[in-house]
């Protein structure tokens, strides 16, 4: 492998990893405070991409405006999903909410199939993204760098919210003990809604960028990236934002580099993440940045 190819692969890994990271943040935030694997997250990701497609092709909105509208819509959708399908189950056994989220995931995916059909569609890309920069033998699409930079910005913004604002304090309180947070006057439902809003907005952002990077969309597009991002979140230590980002990037590298170095394994690409997951759960269930929770007898 030439150094140029390696750099090309590294850049691709970074882009893919950053996309995983953005999705993983949503999983990790919701799991951190509700102990819920939000299966519907991957469908929010998919809908984010579709909303832009619609905004541009149906309502002829300028691209940036369509993006903004999509993020706002999906944030609202995330809040609605929580309100309807998860909030009534706060006192139920933990798995009930998980089953509900599996239901919501299938529901949104199939609603998308009903309305948009299961065929892939090409998406509009702003022109400036089509112009590759050529550095020596390395070809760089602007999106390749755009995504990682944006991811870091989002992460910093989130860390600010979580550690420097009152809402963030609420989030941290709920993640420690939801009952006590009620008693301490935290507006639990509001904080959880905000969490869903932020997580869903980020999922939409990554869905939109995913559509730009691999320029087509279809209703099932969220499933595999969603699983992988969740795995990235577990790998990084569920509940930790930094962990989600690091986990996402590492997963991106593992995936692309393994295929680059061992082309024979390309067919098994989608299995890597799950093998990593099982390994992490067995040997370090708390992940890279997670805190240990003791069972009380």
């Amino acid at each position: 492998m030439t150094p140029e190819m390696f750099i090309q692969h590294a850049l691709n890994s970074l882009t893919l990893g950053s996309l995983y990271a953005l999705i993983a943040i949503g999983y990790t935030m919701v799991y951190g405070i509700l102990r819920l694997i939000n299966f519907a997250h991957s469908e929010i990701f998919m809908l984010g991409a579709y909303f832009v497609f619609w905004g541009v092709s149906l309502f002829s909105l300028p691209w940036p405006l369509a993006v903004a509208a999509s993020i706002v819509f999906t944030a609202g959708l995330g809040i609605m999903v929580d309100r309807i399908a998860y909030r009534p189950l706060r006192d139920a056994p933990r798995i009930s909410a998980l089953i509900s989220s599996i239901g919501v995931s299938f529901f949104l995916q199939n609603v998308a199939i009903v309305f948009f059909q299961a065929i892939p569609r090409g998406v509009y890309r702003p022109e400036w993204m089509e112009q590759p920069w050529i550095v020596g033998a390395v070809r760089i699409l602007p999106i390749t760098l755009f995504v990682p930079v944006l991811s870091v910005l989002f992460m910093l913004g989130l860390l600010y919210i979580v550690y420097r604002t009152k809402t963030g304090l609420g989030m941290r309180a709920i993640s420690k003990d939801i009952e006590t947070s009620y008693l301490m006057g935290v507006n639990v439902n509001r904080v959880i809604a905000i969490t869903f809003g932020i997580g869903s907005g980020l999922a939409a952002a990554s869905g939109i960028m995913w559509a730009l990077r691999y320029p087509q969309i279809q209703p099932m597009m969220g499933t595999i990236p969603g699983f992988k991002a969740f795995i990235a979140a577990v790998f990084g230590g569920i509940g930790s934002i930094q962990g989600a980002v690091v986990g996402g990037v590492v997963l991106g590298f593992i995936e692309i580099m393994t295929v680059a170095f061992f082309p024979d394994l390309a067919g098994y690409r989608d299995a890597f993440a799950f093998i990593l997951l099982i390994g992490v759960l067995l040997f370090k269930p708390t992940g890279l940045f997670g805190a240990r929770v003791e069972d009380k007898v």
Partner: peptide, 15 residues
Amino acid sequence: GIPGMRMVVFSLALI
């Protein structure tokens, strides 16, 4: 026919 409708109904029923 409406592909996907079956699962829409079923996922909704599960919820």
